[in-house]
Design a protein around this nucleic acid. Structure first.
Lengths: 222, 222
DNA sequence: AGCTTTCGCTACGAGTCGTAGCGTAATGCC
DNA sequence: GGCATTACGCTACGACTCGTAGCGAAAGCT
């Protein structure tokens, strides 16, 4: 995951248990100490390994934290709830739940901050976290197209741009809501957000997502 | 800006020039070193002040960087370009230009990361940066309502929720696009984004924002 | 067996942190 | 002018973390 494994067949193999222990210890340290006060020596002690073992596997704090945080986002999945609106609300709530965990908050943001000055780290974040979750958008989109909720896009270039746009809007809004505005992305907020997004995408069932007589008062621009 | 100033009338006043020099030096250090390698001793040297002066005014690295970054976002303004779509595109492009500067990227994200474990810092970011720029949404909204581009919202509670939602969607999407996806928020992207947002908000002139015959190919869900 | 790689441990110089102490400079008040 | 008060520059300090080097032992493979 973090270094080359070109089928190095000879010699003592690296302990997979140590990897798991180190990543778990990293997340625990993120919870208790946060990014800036997290030291590799402390992580090594928590994991029950020597500090030198850490440096043999990861180049530094940045790479270690990225790997530790990336595992959190692999929990995300997209169960079929019958409609595009419900699918989006479900996955957004999952995403918000992950961002509620302190190890995800401080770890992810700090890694992104460091990646602004480290091209290799930026690439690591892209492949380990960002691009990995774009699958959810792709899956939900094709599913909605099969249902007839979204029109098909003949031009593959435009389709790719739209997928990127949706991904940035969804993930960006949730992150900004929870971390910058400091307010919870609860069910009410997610419902409002989904309604705006679907209507913006030209979904024919955008209004159907809001059951009539639910008290009105939905987001209808103000 | 950073400490109590309860009309302390006696004694030598604090040098305002030193404040400006320190904040400028902090931004320069952010550009050259990034967050993690930035040291207060180095900032003091760049600013031409003693290290102790820094500690007398700011509690630590976090607070200093927040103040240094906050000044960057005060440049934002909302010139009247005639239509809501053009207003949004204009301010989003300004925001993207600020996020293009390395001192804003690393400084802002690192501060947000640290704020996840520091309630006082989180409040400082909210008042100094986030809430400060919400004025742009409020101004653009009332302006659009005067033009008849957006319906008025009688319920103040729902209106406030909508303003928050718009703010999180706009700022979040731009930040995620530039920092997470690592792609530029250029004119094409901003146009697509604005179109989706306006249509999602129920703007009556959402389609008018896209001049007919511009080659089609716009974001229309795919 | 022999070979290879990993692991735990110790120790080390380098660098940063945040603070204390001191003398000096710049104000307001009398 | 003289005085009190506060800010400033400078030096020095212990505590801590960093990342690396070196060593012997352990755990695989052929």
């Amino acid at each position: 995951m973090q270094s080359r494994t070109p089928a190095s067949r000879t010699g003592r193999p690296r302990s997979a248990a140590a990897d798991a222990a180190i990543l778990a210890a990293t997340r625990q340290a993120l919870v208790e100490l946060g990014w800036s006060k997290l030291t590799l020596g402390d992580v090594a002690t928590r994991a029950g390994v020597a500090k030198t073992t850490l440096y043999r596997r990861w180049a530094g704090k940045n790479e270690l934290v990225v790997d530790a945080v990336a595992e959190l986002f692999d929990e995300l999945e997209l169960p079929d709830r019958g409609s595009l609106a419900d699918d989006i609300e479900g996955v957004v709530l999952q995403f918000a739940a992950i961002l509620d965990r302190p190890e995800a908050r401080s770890g992810l943001m700090a890694a992104v901050a460091e990646s602004t000055r480290d091209e290799a780290l930026r690439e690591r974040i892209r492949t380990s976290i960002v691009d990995r979750q774009k699958r959810l958008v792709l899956e939900g989109r094709t599913r909605a197209q099969c249902r007839g909720e979204l029109p098909t896009e003949p031009d593959p270039g435009a389709a790719a741009r739209t997928v990127d746009l949706i991904f940035d809007m969804v993930a960006g809004a949730v992150v900004h809501r929870t971390l910058m505005s400091g307010k919870p992305a609860d069910a009410d907020w997610v419902r409002d957000f989904t309604r705006v997004l679907l209507q913006g995408l030209g979904s024919e069932r955008a209004e159907a997502a809001a059951p009539p007589g639910d008290g009105g008062q939905g987001v209808s621009a103000s």
